[in-house]
Simulated assay, not measured.
Amino acid sequence: MKLLDHRAEGAASAPPLLLGPSLGTSCALWDDVAPELSVTHRVVRWDLPGHGGSAAELIGAGATVGDLADLVLALADSLGVERFAYAGVSLGGAVGLHLAVHHPRRVSSLAVICSSAHFNGAKPWQERAALVRREGVASLAATADARWFTPGFTVPRLVRDHQEADPEAYAACCDALAAFDLRERLADISAPTLLIAGREDPATPPAHLRQIADEVPGAALVEIPGASHLAPAERPEAVLTALRAHLDGPSRRGMQVRREVLGDAHVDRAQARQTPFTARFQDFISRYAWGEIWTDPTLPHRERSMITLTALVAHGHYEELAMHVRAARRNGLTPEEIGAVLLQTAVYCGVPAANSAFAAAQRVLAEEDDGRG
């Protein structure tokens, strides 16, 4: 199966972030944003069918945004990416909305940029598709600057992308926009969502983004002055600032929970020991262990402490066990309850493992008693 052409940047172990383009552009739309995001993420930019390096035959007449979303999922699967953050512009943003509604387990966070839950009805896009199938993309490419940027601004590389787009694939993308309308499903989106609007955007004005923000639970909206439809190209610094604040949310939440469970003194010591070599690992812990697992409300912290103690005994991580005995006390477990957990590990993890665990826990509890004395 042919895949969408793509460009990957950043460490393979970093949190994955997929970036979707606007109709008529290639992944070059993200040239001034993606390299900065790749410092903390595994950034994967993809090209629409018939745009950039993607094959035109990946899409056909009567295509839908769902068809494009399936191509994105096939690309993610080929890269071994199960769950990812997603940001997209215009048609790329529509793909993100579709993924968040129909494949919520795949999308960890969503940013929709200069896009909409509907694109002003089917007729304009049907007419544009017919024009392109009849005359090619030249006449549309000639007006790209006016549709994409504020007066006096241009990005020649993106205009060239428009000129070189395959007419049939471009028209099929227009078919997808003509059929797209997710207004009735916005409330179903559960991923943390950011909307970014270009204040001077005539194609998807801020009101379109505001509608999404009003319907998606907990969504945030940022309006960028001096930006038209291709905000990442025209105002990359502002888009980058907004995306960083949004994407770093799990890390911030994770750090807060990490402090609640382990205590400020422990976390401060860990942060003080951090080096450039260990910085990504510390971010990984805060983002995933604390930002996704420990913040999941399905289980209270108290129960999570019991599970963690058992797992650490099973694997013989007694130094880590001591830290989590302290955390268990912070989470409300009594010494008697900790002892009961460790006693159960004797049955399922073995007596020698439980013996070492009791010794480690006894030292922590004795230190606690000494501190109180």
Rank of each mutant, 00 (worst) to 15 (best):
F180I: 15
I59K: 03
D145M: 09
R210Y: 05
H162C: 15
A61N: 07
L309H: 01
L75I: 10
G92D: 06
P15T: 13
V43D: 02
P276L: 09
S13Y: 01
L37A: 08
R147S: 13
L58F: 09
A270E: 08
I307W: 05
G50V: 13
G96T: 05
L158P: 01
C27S: 15
A238R: 01
L48C: 12
T193K: 01
P205D: 09
R304S: 07
A314G: 14
H118V: 10
G218N: 04
L262F: 04
T204L: 09
D47W: 02
P35A: 12
G62H: 07
T241D: 14
P217C: 09
A197H: 02
S38T: 02
L4N: 01
D296G: 06
L194P: 01
D181G: 13
A265I: 03
S286A: 15
L4I: 07
L18C: 06
N120H: 14
I293N: 11
A94D: 05
R363C: 04
S286I: 05
S356C: 12
F149K: 03
R258A: 11
A187P: 02
R287N: 06
F284I: 06
L71D: 10
G254A: 10
L58Q: 07
G52F: 02
R252N: 06
S305M: 12
G53K: 01
P300R: 05
R253I: 06
A61V: 14
